[in-house]
C-alpha cells in the first residue's frame, strides 16, 4: 500500500507558480471571446439609401414618363389563317418620376431633381421589328413611329403560317434619338421579347379548307337527314289527323 508523503514547501511553491500563468491564459481567452461577439444592429425607422439618390440626382437627359410595353400574340394559329402580333408602347398613368425609394415599409423621399427632357432636344422614334422565320409576315420591314409625350405607339404584324409546326421569333423595340440641332442619330434597344407560335392543321386540312368542307358537308347532311325526317314526320302527322277525324265522325 503506497504511502502519501506530505507536500514540501518547495513543491507547494512550484504548484502555485504554475497556476498563475494558467489563470492568466484563461482570462485572456475569455476577453478575446467577449470582444468577438457579433453586434446585431438595431432596426431604426429611417434608413438612408446612399447609392440610389446620388445616382438619380446626376441623371442624364431622358424621357420623363413611365411606359408600359404590352405584347400580344396568338399561341396557336391554323395553317393558312392569319393573325396579329401587336406591340403597344403605352404611357403608364401611375408612373411617378420623382425619385423615391421604399425599404420595408419605411419610405425615403429624395430631393426632386431636374431631369432634362429628351423630347425637347431630340426627335424620338420607336422602331418595331419582328424577327421570325417560316411565317409570312406583313409588313416585312421595320415599322417606325414617332414617339410623342403622353402618346401611345402601337405596332402590329400580320402573320400566316403555310406549314404546321412550332415557330419561334423575337419582337424588337428600338428607340431612335435624332438631335434637333442636327447630328448623328443614336439607337437604343429597349426590349427583345421571345414569342412561340404553334401552327396546326386538322388531318392535313388548313383552316380555310376545313371551314369550306364543313359548310358544304353541313348543307348536304341537312338535306340528306332532315328532308326524309320531315317527310316522315309529315306522314305521321297526316295519319294522326286522319285518326282524329275518323274518331270524331264515329
Amino acid at each position: 500500500m503506497p504511502s502519501v508523503l506530505p507536500e514540501t514547501a518547495t513543491q507547494r511553491f512550484i504548484r502555485k507558480a504554475l497556476q498563475i500563468p494558467f489563470l492568466l491564459f484563461l482570462s485572456l481567452i475569455l476577453v478575446a471571446c467577449a470582444s468577438a461577439t457579433i453586434e446585431v444592429p438595431t432596426r431604426s425607422n429611417t434608413q438612408t439609401v446612399p447609392s440610389l439618390l446620388p445616382s438619380l440626382a446626376t441623371q442624364p437627359a431622358q424621357i420623363p414618363e413611365q411606359r408600359m410595353l404590352i405584347l400580344e400574340w396568338p399561341q396557336t394559329i391554323r395553317v393558312g389563317d392569319s393573325d396579329l402580333i401587336s406591340l403597344a408602347f403605352e404611357v403608364n398613368p401611375k408612373g411617378n418620376i420623382t425619385p423615391m425609394a421604399s425599404i420595408e415599409g419605411n419610405q425615403v423621399q429624395g430631393e426632386t431633381v431636374f431631369i432634362a427632357n429628351l423630347y425637347e432636344t431630340h426627335y424620338v422614334f420607336a422602331e418595331g421589328h419582328l424577327d421570325i422565320s417560316g411565317l409570312e409576315i406583313k409588313p416585312n420591314s421595320d415599322i417606325l413611329e414617332s414617339l410623342q409625350m403622353g402618346k401611345t405607339v402601337k405596332f402590329a404584324w400580320s402573320v400566316r403560317p403555310q406549314q404546321a409546326g412550332n415557330y419561334r421569333g423575337l419582337v424588337w423595340l428600338h428607340l431612335i434619338f435624332k438631335p434637333k440641332s442636327g447630328g448623328a442619330e443614336e439607337r437604343r434597344a429597349l426590349s427583345a421579347q421571345r414569342i412561340d407560335i404553334r401552327a396546326v392543321n386538322l388531318l392535313g386540312l388548313s383552316g380555310n379548307a376545313a371551314r369550306w368542307i364543313g359548310a358544304i358537308g353541313f348543307l348536304l347532311g341537312s338535306w340528306l337527314s332532315f328532308n326524309p325526317a320531315a317527310a316522315l314526320f309529315g306522314k305521321l302527322w297526316e295519319r294522326i289527323q286522319k285518326r282524329r277525324h275518323t274518331s270524331k265522325e264515329g
Partner: peptide, 24 residues
C-alpha cells in the same frame, strides 16, 4: 370541322414596365 375552323385560340399577353432610366 366547323368548330375546329372557327374556334378562337387563346392569345398571350405580356406586360413590361419601362422606366425613364431605360429611355435615355
Amino acid at each position: 370541322l366547323l368548330i375546329w375552323g372557327f374556334f378562337p385560340y387563346k392569345r398571350e399577353r405580356r406586360e413590361m414596365r419601362i422606366l425613364p432610366q431605360e429611355m435615355q
